[in-house]
């Protein structure tokens, strides 16, 4: 296993650059949630030259569609969704300042190249650990597209949110490396 870091969001360039695939990071601060439908709208806004519902500079986006909160709780269960569905949108967001993405599953060549070019990282969170990860979210507020239901954009505050670096700024990929190490041919 790699290094362990505790990082605050928005991410600073020097923080992003020191991270390596395999490092474990505990994130603290504001993160924005967005899935496919929200990503499409964000990219459409950028194409139209319009203002986004949140500041992308140094931002971390979490690919998640949580369950509804129980009364008195900020959010329900909130584990990551599969990231490849965001692959066609992520490079545009990265080129406009996005510095971290949290999801699960392999990313496309284009996303990995964008991470290298602009200095961004892709974090993996444990899929199916929605109860555990939901408890790390201390507040949640819908800031855009409430009509999308679970896919609305939320501004969430996380505390020691556990993720693993999958793709770093050097182009390393933990999935490929890990699999190659244990594959029996």
């Amino acid at each position: 296993m790699g290094q362990i870091y505790y990082l605050k969001t928005p991410l600073r360039d020097e923080d992003v650059k020191k991270l390596r695939a395999g490092d474990i990071v505990f994130l603290n601060g504001v993160v924005y949630t967005a899935r496919d439908a929200a990503h499409k709208r964000l990219v459409d806004l950028i194409s139209a030259g319009e203002k986004l519902p949140f500041d992308l500079n140094g931002a971390v986006v979490y690919f998640v569609g949580p369950t509804p909160p129980k009364p008195g709780e900020p959010i329900g269960s909130a584990g990551p969704t599969t990231s490849y569905r965001m692959d066609s949108y992520s490079p545009t967001l990265i080129s406009h300042g996005l510095r971290g993405m949290i999801g699960k599953g392999e990313r496309s060549r284009e996303v990995i190249d964008s991470c290298m070019k602009y200095g961004a990282v892709y974090f993996g969170a444990t899929g199916g650990a929605g109860a555990l990860l939901g408890k790390k979210i201390k507040s949640s507020e819908i800031i855009a597209y409430p009509e999308l239901g679970p896919e609305a954009i939320r501004r969430i505050e996380v505390e020691d949110f556990p993720v693993t670096v999958i793709n770093d700024v050097l182009g390393d990929d933990l999935y490929q490396r890990g699999r190659a190490e244990y594959e029996i041919k």
Partner: peptide
């Protein structure tokens, strides 16, 4: 693999939290 072992530990911890606190195991 130590990394996969840790993930499996998280998955089992998640199932304990879900059952004890009556939370959905997964958001899906």
């Amino acid at each position: 693999s130590p990394v996969s072992k840790e993930i499996l530990r998280q998955i089992l911890e998640n199932s304990q939290i879900a059952s004890k606190e009556f939370r959905p195991l997964c958001q899906d």
